[in-house]
C-alpha cells in the first residue's frame, strides 16, 4: 500500500514540478512586453554605442584638417598584431630643421584585435577608438585604411 502511495506521490510531484517550469515559459508567452530583441537595422537611428566602445582605431582631425600624429612609431611598436604601419618622410620645416612627418598612417582593420594598446601608449593622444561597428565590406583590401586624411598636417604645438 505504501509503495502505491509513494508511486502516486512521485507522479503528482513530478507533474507539479513540470508545471512550475511551464509557468515560466507561459508567463513570457503572455507578456510580450518582456521581449528584449532589438530590431537592428531598423533601429539605426536610435542606436547609440557607449562612448568607450572600441569599434575601430581612428585619428581625430580638427576643423583645419590637422591631426596630432608625429609619426613616432610607438603605436606600430606596441601593436601585437602588426596592424599599424606608419610611412613617414623627412621634411625640412620653416626653421630649416629636418623633421619626420607623417605621410601615411595605415591601419589594417582586419588584423586589429581592439586591445587599445596603440591608443593608450600614444604619447601625443593622436589616436582614439571610434564607435562605428559596421565594418562589413565586399573586398578585404578595403579593410586597410589610411587614418590621416589627405592633405592633413600636424597640429601646431604638438611635438
Amino acid at each position: 500500500m505504501r509503495s502505491i502511495i509513494n508511486y502516486l506521490k512521485e507522479i503528482f510531484g513530478a507533474v507539479a514540478a513540470l508545471f512550475k517550469g511551464m509557468r515560466v515559459t507561459g508567463y513570457y508567452f503572455f507578456h510580450p512586453k518582456e521581449i528584449v530583441t532589438q530590431q537592428y537595422p531598423e533601429n539605426r537611428a536610435t542606436l547609440t554605442m557607449f562612448d568607450r566602445f572600441k569599434g575601430e582605431v581612428i585619428m581625430p582631425h580638427n576643423e583645419n584638417n590637422e591631426h596630432k600624429c608625429t609619426a613616432c612609431g610607438i603605436c606600430e611598436m606596441n601593436c601585437p598584431n602588426g596592424s599599424i604601419e606608419i610611412i613617414s618622410e623627412m621634411k625640412v620645416n620653416e626653421e630649416g630643421k629636418k623633421k619626420k612627418v607623417l605621410s601615411k598612417h595605415i591601419y589594417h582593420l582586419g588584423m586589429c584585435t581592439f586591445c587599445n594598446l596603440c591608443v593608450k601608449t600614444c604619447p601625443s593622444n593622436a589616436l582614439a577608438m571610434g564607435q562605428d561597428f559596421e565594418h562589413a565590406v565586399f573586398d578585404r583590401s578595403k579593410l586597410n585604411k589610411v587614418l590621416n586624411k589627405p592633405g592633413s598636417v600636424l597640429m601646431k604645438g604638438t611635438e
Binding site: M49, F50, R52, F53, K54, T113, F114, C115, N116
Partner: peptide, 12 residues
C-alpha cells in the same frame, strides 16, 4: 562591460 571597457567578450 561595454560601458566601462568598450568590449563585450574579449575585454583586455
Amino acid at each position: 562591460f561595454e560601458e566601462t571597457i568598450g568590449a563585450r567578450l574579449l575585454l583586455s
